[in-house]
């Protein structure tokens, strides 16, 4: 259950940079190392495609009930059950796209101070997430920072 929520938050982060190139810094407490990733995200009507260009080219496609990964080893697809992270993923994406506050409020309470919005997790999310920070430059997203309770940290920044 836990990895799914973190996965969800990552996607949540990525969706903030819809149709934009992004840079991701992933600190992994378990190995005390930081990974750097780069890529693009595209939103379809029914799916979301995340194309990583670095460190290795990989394409992730999410659609309702399923996930596919395409890399140099070929194509793999998994059917996810209805209440899996996949649904949460779509939920978050829609929330961002549609300014769906009702949906976001299912997981977070938010505090906005000037250009920064802090999302405080509640209920199930609070078991995993310490804090989410969104920084904007005007109406444009600048960065997103997720701190997890297991010590991992993920920072995503838009690339101009």
């Amino acid at each position: 259950m836990r990895p799914k929520i973190v996965l969800l938050l990552l996607f949540f982060a990525l969706t903030l940079f819809a149709q934009n190139p992004f840079k991701e810094t992933r600190y992994i407490y378990a190995i005390d190392k930081t990974l750097l990733l780069e890529g693009y995200i595209t939103f379809g009507e029914q799916n979301v495609i995340i194309e990583y260009t670095k460190p290795q080219p990989k394409v992730l496609t999410y659609f309702e009930g399923g996930l596919s990964i395409q890399d140099e080893n070929g194509y793999t697809a998994t059917q996810l059950n209805a209440n899996s992270a996949m649904n949460y993923f779509f939920m978050i994406i829609k929330a961002i796209e549609e300014n769906n506050d009702a949906l976001l409020e299912s997981f977070f309470t938010s505090k906005t101070d000037a250009q920064t919005t802090i999302l405080e997790p509640k209920d199930t999310a609070s078991q995993m997430v310490q804090e989410v920070k969104i920084t904007k430059n005007g109406n444009k997203l600048k960065s997103l920072h997720v701190e997890l309770k297991n010590g991992d940290r993920i920072t995503i920044e838009t690339v101009d």
Binding site: P3, L10, I31, Q56, M128, N150
Partner: peptide, 25 residues
Amino acid sequence: ITTNPYYTAIDTQDPLGYFKPLNPN
């Protein structure tokens, strides 16, 4: 955790996967 394109967390209580995930819903 190092090569997955999406963030993956480890189940530190059961790293060897002796138990199936619990899904009360």
